[in-house]
Structures are given as structure tokens and as C-alpha cells.
Simulated assay, not measured.
Amino acid sequence: MIPLDGLALAPTDAPDAGDVALIERELVAFNVERSLPYDRRPLCVFLRDGAGRAVGGVTGSTNWGWLYLDCFWLPDALRQGGWGGRVLAAAEAEAVARGCRRARLYTYSFQAQSFYERHGYTVFGTLEDDPPGHRQVWMRKDLSA
């Protein structure tokens, strides 16, 4: 039982790693009790130069049969040369190898919606004026096709 006296809200932009770990650990335990096995694993694909330094790539995770793409970035010099498609395909292939059947992500109207559409993603939702003057676009793809 948590004593209710002395509780205080503490907003921060510099969280303690242990505090973050507590929230994540407890949410995972909650999810495991009520749903499928919680099998979340990071999935990143880095594009590396000849010296082995990351020059771009994608970050995300897999869980419950889904690939969740978070951040995808390539420098301007590597765009329009097919590298983006190869990075995305590598992430999707690894996700399929992990048993994923679908992928989802969000992008913004000033980012890469058309790139994802060319690679089979479809829009399933939008948030208008987020950020102001633009929209957030939620997309998904069936990886079993």
C-alpha cells in the first residue's frame, strides 16, 4: 500500500533513469497480466560508413506481432538513392523474422508520407494542426502480403 500523505507531483525534463525504469517495469508487468506475452524488443537498422560509423538509419521495436517504427533519418546526400528503401526493407525483414505481421508508424506532413506510401504503407489516422500548420499522419502496413 502506498501512503497517500506526502505525495507530490514532480514534472521534469531530466528524469532519473531508475524512475523511468520503475514506470516501464510496472507497465510491462501490468500488460503481461492482462494480455499476450509482452515480447517488446528494440529493432534498429543503422546505415554505416566504411569506418563503421552510423550515418543514418531507423529505430523502433517489435511487440505483439507489430513493428513499431520510431525515428528514421538519412542525411540529404543519401536520399533519393534507394538507401531509405533498403533501410526500411531491412527493418521489415527483421520484424517478419521475429514473427511480426504488421507495421505502424507516424510521420508528419512535412516529412516522408509519400515515401512510406511508395513502400506500401496506408494512412489510418491524422491529427490536424500537429505541429501547428501541419498534420501528424499515422500509417500501417501488412507485412504478411
Rank of each mutant, 00 (worst) to 15 (best):
1 M>L: 10
1 M>F: 10
1 M>D: 12
3 P>D: 14
5 D>N: 13
6 G>C: 05
6 G>P: 06
6 G>Y: 07
7 L>Y: 08
8 A>F: 09
10 A>P: 06
11 P>Y: 07
12 T>D: 13
14 A>G: 12
17 A>T: 15
18 G>N: 04
20 V>H: 12
20 V>E: 13
21 A>F: 08
21 A>R: 15
21 A>L: 12
24 E>M: 10
24 E>K: 12
25 R>F: 09
25 R>T: 15
27 L>A: 13
28 V>W: 05
29 A>P: 06
30 F>R: 08
30 F>T: 03
30 F>G: 03
30 F>P: 01
31 N>W: 03
32 V>S: 13
33 E>F: 09
34 R>T: 11
40 R>T: 08
42 P>A: 07
43 L>Q: 01
43 L>E: 01
45 V>L: 05
51 A>S: 14
53 R>T: 11
54 A>F: 01
55 V>R: 08
56 G>I: 00
59 T>E: 10
62 T>G: 01
65 G>N: 05
65 G>Q: 00
66 W>G: 00
67 L>V: 06
71 C>K: 11
71 C>L: 13
72 F>I: 01
72 F>A: 00
72 F>M: 07
73 W>V: 06
77 A>Y: 07
79 R>G: 11
79 R>H: 11
81 G>W: 10
82 G>A: 13
86 R>Y: 12
86 R>V: 09
89 A>K: 08
96 V>Q: 06
96 V>F: 09
98 R>F: 05
99 G>L: 05
100 C>I: 04
102 R>F: 14
102 R>G: 09
104 R>K: 13
106 Y>L: 11
106 Y>K: 02
107 T>E: 03
108 Y>F: 15
111 Q>V: 10
112 A>I: 05
112 A>H: 04
114 S>V: 06
114 S>L: 01
115 F>Q: 14
115 F>R: 03
116 Y>V: 02
118 R>S: 13
118 R>L: 09
119 H>K: 08
119 H>C: 08
122 T>W: 07
123 V>H: 00
125 G>W: 00
128 E>Y: 03
129 D>M: 00
129 D>G: 01
132 P>M: 01
135 R>V: 00
139 M>F: 11
141 K>P: 03
141 K>I: 00
142 D>F: 03
142 D>Y: 05
143 L>P: 04
143 L>A: 02
